[in-house]
């Protein structure tokens, strides 16, 4: 269980600080909505460790996350764009998620399996730059599979996708979250995505993160 309590953060001393309180369960997708500029990405940066709060606590299953550097946090992060190294092949992008050390001969099958799980078997050699938006997000998810961190943060992952790809990508995120028992936090301002996926909804308004009427999916 990921728990944020009394998190306060402001970009500048004179600004009114953001106030974030939330609880997210494993195997579930919690959605965070809010207008553009509301502070959604700020929230994810705080969880991922790119920003440090001025006050509050953040724990995963009782373990304090705040002392951990970004690279040590039990978190995978999918940005809206720029989520792959465009110059690398799909499989070399996925390979960056392998635990270290992984022996060279073990790497190939692991990468192939991860690509197959996101429905992209056989595209491993293709350059990331030549992939479609939906394929890129899947490659990034395959990398997440190998990293196998308990928390998955998604920052508007579907906003660049067309309707059909978007439905498929949604299903993939839902299935992976369940299958791997991830605690997934989905940031989106697209109500349809949220309705389709979220078991638990939050909204940032005026810098404060508040729960919305929760539904059971």
């Amino acid at each position: 269980m990921l728990r944020l309590e009394g998190i306060r953060f402001a970009y500048a001393p004179e600004a009114l600080p953001y106030r974030f309180d939330m609880v997210a369960q494993p195997g579930e997708i919690s959605a965070v909505m809010g207008a553009s500029g509301a502070g959604k990405s700020t929230l994810l940066d705080l969880i991922a460790g790119f920003l440090l709060p001025q006050a509050g606590s953040m724990t995963l299953d009782g373990v304090d996350l705040l002392p951990l550097q970004p690279e040590d946090r039990p978190v995978s992060l999918l940005f809206q764009s720029n989520t792959l190294f465009e110059h690398l092949s799909a499989e070399n992008n996925v390979a960056l998620g392998l635990p270290r050390p992984t022996r060279r001969k073990d790497a190939g099958p692991l990468i192939a399996a991860a690509l197959a799980e996101v429905g992209l078997a056989g595209i491993g050699k293709q350059r990331a730059a030549t992939l479609s938006g939906g394929q890129k997000q899947r490659v990034a998810l395959a990398r997440t599979l190998l990293r196998n961190k308990p928390v998955l943060l998604l920052d508007e992952p579907f906003s660049a996708l067309d309707d059909e790809t978007r439905v498929a990508a949604r299903d993939l995120v839902r299935n992976l979250t369940r299958a791997h028992d991830w605690t997934t936090i989905l940031v989106s301002h697209h109500t349809e995505d949220v309705q389709a996926l979220a078991t638990c909804r939050y909204r940032i308004a005026a810098g404060v993160l508040l729960p919305e009427g929760n539904t059971a999916a």
């Binding site: 991922a48 790119f50 970004p70 690279e71 040590d72 978190v75 995978s76 992060l77 940005f79 720029n82 989520t83 190294f85 110059h87 690398l88 070399n92 960056l96 998620g97 270290r100 990398r143 990293r147």
Partner: peptide, 25 residues
């Protein structure tokens, strides 16, 4: 500046950063 956040979120080592990102680019 452009890929630092991605590099960091993946926890790449300096060597991986060189071999996978800097050398190819």
């Amino acid at each position: 500046s452009g890929q630092g956040k991605l590099i960091r979120s993946l926890g790449l080592s300096g060597w991986q950063q060189f071999v996978r990102v800097e050398w190819p680019l």
